[in-house]
Design a protein around this nucleic acid. Sequence first.
DNA 1: AAAATATATTTGTATATACAATTTTTGTAG
DNA 2: CTACAAAAATTGTATATACAAATATATTTT
Lengths: 148, 148
Amino acid sequence: MNVEEIIRTDKKIPLNSRTIIHFLLVNNKINEHISRILKPFDVSLQQFNVLRILRGRKGKPANLSTLNERMVTKMSNTTRLVDKLLSKGYVERRVCPSNRRKVEITITTQGNNALKKMDVAMSGVEKEILKNLSTDELEQLNRLLHKF
Amino acid sequence: MNVEEIIRTDKKIPLNSRTIIHFLLVNNKINEHISRILKPFDVSLQQFNVLRILRGRKGKPANLSTLNERMVTKMSNTTRLVDKLLSKGYVERRVCPSNRRKVEITITTQGNNALKKMDVAMSGVEKEILKNLSTDELEQLNRLLHKF
DNA sequence: AAAATATATTTGTATATACAATTTTTGTAG
DNA sequence: CTACAAAAATTGTATATACAAATATATTTT
């Protein structure tokens, strides 16, 4: 992916700007890939992430605020996102007995099964996206990303 | 920015997945920064990019399809995006005389002036976002991004 | 030249997201 | 104990985005 080619400008771009634009372009490509492979499962990237967070809790329920904290993309209405998962039967929601302000969200067996299939598709697309980068380069990239 | 810290999972993540998640997290941070500084100008990142593309054409008008091609984030309705810029007086639109299917979009003086101010703000936030990376690291990063 | 096809843009609609206001419950100061 | 503030989630609303269908003009085919 070549920045200059895509944005086709003659004057050379300052390194900072160039980096940011480059980054946004790559991100866009990644998003396209991911949403394409998640489409058959009828979940968004956000929903997929929430399912993964829930699985990571191994039965322990999560309430909305903790979900929100850990979501890759912050959004104010986790409520409605969970609604979607609920209507697909992927999660369960119940009022927390010890603190009735909170709600407890847990992943269902059905959700776990669907998630397993998504995982396969996801690791396929990850491989596809990263196919031109060696292990060394991936580690280098992670080191750089860590500095942000 | 530390992936593990944010997604708080105990089992270690495969390098591929880790890279993608890391990437999405950083992108999110970048987007937050950028939309924060563009907010006072009442333009979205997309609109800002379109203005930059138009400026780059130095008076030569651009039609919607070429705008769409060069936009960082693809979207089907460039029409409505241009509407927004139009209502702010930042661009002009007129039917192309040689091919009446096309419309020609040009940036106005007012748009150029606003854009100059946005540039200052933008290069400030770019600096802020990238403050922990050296020139060398930025070049390294661009080299890696180029492989996507 | 009429019909079919392609190009360029616009519009409709459903869903996603951001932000603010509201509701419900809990905790705390007087 | 009442009043007030804080916490957690939900709802309302405006805007953004994705995708498909529709419109208008131009080009090609027969």
